[in-house]
Structure formats: structure tokens, C-alpha cells
Amino acid sequence: TDVTFHVNGRNLHLKGADEELLRRIEELIRRGADIEELEKAVKEWEK
């Protein structure tokens, strides 16, 4: 799945995201995470 999140005026584009990653990103956004936290979560998922 390709999806782009718009967070605090910045874009986080995910290519090939699975349901697990999407749920994790949505949860972080609900908690008020900043873009750096979201990018870190994506990097951890990519490993």
C-alpha cells in the first residue's frame, strides 16, 4: 500500500506499507507524535 500522511505541514510518504505499519503510524499520530517519531517508526519497520 502506498499512502501519504500529512503531519504538521510535512508529508510522510510510505511505499509498500503493510497493515501493521499503518496501524502503528495512526496510533502515533493519535498520541500527537511529531514527524521525526513517525520517520523513526518507519525506519524500524523497514529493517
Rank of each mutant, 00 (worst) to 15 (best):
E37A: 10
E37C: 08
D18P: 15
E36D: 12
K40S: 12
E46G: 13
L14V: 14
E44N: 11
L12F: 15
E19Y: 10
D34W: 05
E26D: 07
D2W: 08
R23P: 01
R30T: 10
T1K: 15
E20P: 09
D2R: 03
E39Y: 09
E36T: 07
V42P: 00
L12N: 00
D2T: 08
E44A: 11
L22P: 00
E46S: 11
L14E: 00
R24Y: 14
E19A: 14
R31T: 09
L28R: 04
R23S: 09
R10V: 15
L22R: 05
W45T: 04
G16K: 07
I25E: 00
E46P: 13
E19Q: 13
E46I: 10
E44P: 01
E36P: 13
V42D: 00
L12E: 00
A41L: 10
W45A: 06
K47N: 12
K15Y: 09
I29P: 00
N11Y: 15
H13R: 05
E20N: 14
E27T: 11
E36Y: 08
L22V: 15
N11T: 15
I25F: 04
D2I: 08
L21E: 01
R10K: 15
G9H: 03
A17C: 07
G16R: 07
E39H: 07
L21F: 08
R23Y: 10
D18N: 12
E44Y: 08
I25Y: 00
T4V: 14
A41M: 08
G32A: 03
L22K: 06
E19R: 12
N8H: 05
A33K: 10
K47Y: 11
L28P: 00
E36R: 06
L14H: 00
E46M: 09
F5D: 02
E44T: 08
R23C: 06
V7K: 02
K15P: 04
K15L: 06
L14C: 01
G32L: 04
R10T: 15
G16F: 07
L38C: 13
G32P: 01
R31P: 00
E44W: 08
T4G: 02
K43I: 09
I29T: 02
E20H: 12
V3R: 09
W45P: 03
V7M: 03
G16A: 07
D34G: 10
L14S: 00
R24W: 15
E26K: 13
A41E: 14
E19M: 13
L28A: 07
D34T: 12
V3L: 06
K40W: 11
A33Y: 13
A17V: 09
A33G: 05
E26A: 10
E26Q: 09
E37G: 07
R23G: 11
H6M: 10
L22Q: 04
G9V: 02
E39Q: 08
E36N: 10
N11I: 15
T1W: 14
